[in-house]
Write a protein that binds this DNA or RNA. Structure first.
Length: 352
DNA sequence: TAGCCGTGGTT
DNA sequence: TAACCAAGGCT
């Protein structure tokens, strides 16, 4: 079989330039990595930077060192540990998959079997199969899409370009080192074949690269135009009773699904403020600005103190949490910032 | 298919 | 500053 110069050159580059990551074995390592660790990393890394996922991976692994341990965890504990990382459906699917794997008695070891688990799609199934089990799967993530679309000057706009990209890459996957090959391409995309201003002079694949030869690597990959994000607004209610704060839990699916939250109005482009009951309300001078994937939110916060605690607010069941427990409640970032704004303000008043 | 789904860093 | 982007999956 002839030597594939593309896989040879990228693997050679990887020997010298692989990023040292806590879940990764060094290039050329003959010992297979623990599939649980690889899976946990891959889920956390979906649409998430290495820098953001790293501390979460270490904490999860310390608390739940095996898939069996994770399978026994309480849902609320897992959601609290995930708080701040975003895309909370990943955490719900992670736990569901852990329980399925634990019940099955063995970790799925093929791309096809991995693909059946919740939270594991085409990319993640191929990545785990290649990295943890040595299966010569064709791994395609956003980095590899960029590298391959430049390498072969594929002008079809994403996401339709996915199939031609996969077809172009598949013949180059080395059967003996598919995991290193995938990770090498991802590292190359992250450090060298970057979205803007790619460092072609430092790239081991530039001799093979059609976009480099054309002089316009920046033009790839071609992407469909994306819609602009609408601006929405809303009001959160910070309701104190003695030392306690009223919290709700968001519905199990959808935005911030299953996460603790402050009660409040809905969010919309022209959402009017209203209060859930008559009281003396004080509105914080500045709303909390928070960007979601498909809209931007300005969340104002209205504060009051009540004499008699209620079991529900605006139809939502309420739990009362002590002030000192707020930092450990596992708020998603939006509500963590809203709570901080309130607590910072009351702190100022004490000082003044 | 395309919209939904978080957050923080980079340019 | 605003847009872009990240080891995507689900419906």
């Amino acid at each position: 079989m002839p030597v594939d110069s593309i896989s040879r050159d990228i693997l050679r580059w990887y020997e010298k330039n692989a990023r040292a990551l806590p879940w990764r074995h060094p290039p050329g390592c003959t010992q297979a990595p623990d599939p649980y660790r690889v899976w946990l990393a891959e889920i956390m890394l979906q649409q998430t930077t290495v820098a953001a996922a790293g501390p979460y991976w270490l904490r999860f692994l310390g608390r739940w060192p095996t898939v069996q341990a994770l399978a026994k965890a309480d849902d609320a504990d897992v959601m609290r540990e995930w708080a701040g990382l975003g895309y909370y459906a990943r955490a719900r699917n992670l736990l569901a998959a852990a329980r399925a794997i634990s019940a099955a008695g063995a970790f799925p070891s093929t791309e096809a079997d991995l693909r059946q688990l919740p939270g594991i799609g085409a990319y993640t199934a191929a990545a785990i199969a290649a990295i943890a089990f040595g299966e010569p799967a064709t791994v395609i993530d956003a980095n590899i899409e960029r590298v391959v679309s430049r390498l072969f000057a594929i002008a079809t706009p994403l996401p339709a370009a996915k199939a031609p990209i996969s077809a172009a890459l598949a013949p180059h996957v080395p059967r003996d080192r598919p995991g290193d090959f995938a990770q090498a391409l991802m590292d190359l995309g992250a450090t060298t074949c970057t979205p803007r201003n790619p460092r072609c002079l430092a790239c081991p694949l530039s001799p093979h690269c059609a976009a480099h030869a054309n002089g316009n690597p920046d033009a790839y990959p071609v992407k469909a135009a994306k819609r602009l994000r609408p601006k929405k607004q809303g009001l959160a209610w910070w309701i104190e009773h003695g030392d306690d704060i009223a919290l709700i839990r968001r519905p199990p699916r959808g935005l911030l699904g299953g996460m603790p939250a402050l009660p409040g109005t809905g969010w919309a482009t022209d959402q009017p403020f209203h209060m859930p009951f008559e009281a003396e309300w004080r509105i914080l001078p500045e709303p909390v600005s928070h960007g979601f994937t498909h809209f931007e939110l300005r969340l104002s916060v209205a504060c009051t103190t009540i004499a008699h605690r209620m079991a529900e607010i605006a139809g939502n069941p309420v739990s009362w949490i002590s002030r000192k427990d707020i930092p450990a409640i596992g708020f998603p970032t939006l509500y963590a910032r809203a709570a901080k704004a309130v607590l910072d303000q009351s702190h100022e008043q004490v000082i003044l």
